[in-house]
Design a protein around this nucleic acid. Structure first.
Lengths: 135, 135
DNA sequence: TATAAGTTTAAAGTATACTTTAAGGTCAAC
DNA sequence: GTTGACCTTAAAGTATACTTTAAACTTATA
């Protein structure tokens, strides 16, 4: 199939598919006699995997390595398995760190809102610089 | 004081201070006879506020608007108050949305890890494409 | 046959928050 | 008077994941 059909099937824009190829997420595609890229079911599966990895929050760079491992899997498949688990754990760490940051922001925002409400109840409608500085 | 001292006091790089001025987070600074920027305590306070707003996760663009409101506060100060609350609520929404995304990722990653472990226990050390596609 | 739809490439643009670079002027101290 | 620290500007670079643009070629349809 041509790039347009692959795009329709997977929901990934043709431009993006070429972009992924350039970034090494997809192998260099074979070409028809007219120079057009041609794809098959394996291409669909690869794009599906890429979309899945993106859902987990992996960067394209990681996905490229990741797929490189999976596709060019050599003798020791168990190593690949461990690598994959390792990558998942690294991402899990990142997610936890981000969540902690967001939780901190959330709590600071709520505190700040409360301060503003207190001010308002005391009839102070003016926002002083001080409250901003200490929030 | 000159930009270097302001930088030392606030911990914000001189380059970044110029950058903030260019982006409208800080007012156009007055200049000494030599053309050097000169600052005072108010500048320190403004930078402190900027750092605080950044901790809450606000974008520089929002901080610029935000400070514009606070500094050029006109007749109706209560409006500013409401605007501030509004901005905080918008940011709170963003934070909640991001947290939901991260939580979804977290749960998908854990599910995936479990699948890998099950495979491993069954003696399947090879990572098949299928498990990646469905994760 | 001409028009429309699909394909090709490389390069530039978008968004965010800076940092780095380059090339040069100013000032205090030795 | 020169060394070193500090200041100036504008432009480009960094990172990420694309999207947009331009200019051109191929194929299917009317």
């Amino acid at each position: 199939m041509q790039i347009g059909e692959l795009s329709n099937i997977t929901g990934v824009a043709a431009h993006t598919i070429r972009f992924y190829e350039a970034r090494g997420l997809l192998p260099k595609s074979t070409r028809g006699s007219n120079g057009y890229r041609s794809y098959d079911q394996q291409s669909v599966r690869l794009l599906t995997i890429i979309q899945c990895a993106k859902r987990l929050g992996f960067k394209l760079e990681n996905i490229a390595e990741f797929l490189g491992d999976a596709i060019t899997s050599n003798a020791d498949e168990k190593l690949d398995h461990d690598k994959l688990l390792q990558r998942l754990d690294v991402r899990l760490q990142e997610v936890d760190t981000l969540m902690a940051t967001l939780e901190a922001q959330r709590s600071e925002i709520l505190t700040f809102k409360q301060q503003l409400k207190n001010n308002l109840e005391q009839g102070q409608c003016l926002i002083s610089m001080e409250i901003l500085e200490t929030a």
